[in-house]
Amino acid sequence: MPANRFNGFSDYGVGIGLRVAHYGHILSEKPVVDWFEIISENFMVDGGRPLHILDQILEQYRVVQHGVSMYFGSAERLNREHLKKLKRLVKRTQTPWLSDHLCWGSVDGRYTHDLLPMPYTFAAAKVTARKIRQTRDFLEVPIAVENVSSYAEFHASEMTEWEFLSEVVERADCGILLDVNNIYVSSRNHDFDPVEYLDSVPIERVAQIHIAGHSKFRKYILDTHDHPVIDPVWKLYAHAIHLAGTTPTLLEWDARIPSFGEVHEEALKANQFIERCCEKAAV
């Protein structure tokens, strides 16, 4: 199920996140990369270098937008100014789908700039799904929501995280950006089975997959995106691909960023799992 209505019926393979540290290399060497994911907020500006660079990238590469501040799960209304800026960027990039996180982060107009965990309740799912629908209707582009890494759980929760994710995406009729590293991190922090998570989500809604590295501390794991992907996360990725079929896949590396070549090489490891999946499908 590589192309579906949640990713604009696109055929994207393995991409990497576009980061400032690699601008020079990308623009001068023009490496072959299937697609880049950009952080929308970094380009929701009115001019200057960010848009100049983006336009050069768009001349040569396919770009997908990924956001960090829509906060679909916040109880407050969507910010119209934010949406207008986002729509201007959507028109510029022609992103086939747009993703953001299943989380909250602002309240009363004040922003924490973090991806805070949701209480897994039906009321929260309803609020969240409504905002996703409103966003999709305004932006006129398919939306995929990403499961976040979390470090806390609420007493108020009425269901598991994967049940909540399913409830939201079914109500919103939107896609899923399945972050297998986040599933791994949260499974260790909250002691659940990550395979059960993967087996339980509506897999036909998966628009994209994220892979990344993280940092292990004595009592918990932090989603830091500053290491290569570890084997248990690759195993989860293989399982996700087995369930979902070939799916647009993106490696995130946001801190202590190594050379472009190193990041790209790490991302391309995903191809071996995709190829294996294709071989099985052909048999």
């Binding site: 109880a75 909250w104 309240v107 209480p119 309740t121 009321a123 929260a124 609020v127 108020a156």
Partner: peptide, 12 residues
């Protein structure tokens, strides 16, 4: 509990 938008806002 968090069974309404208002209660969700209070928790947030």
């Amino acid at each position: 509990k968090t069974q309404s938008k208002r209660e969700l806002r209070d928790l947030q």
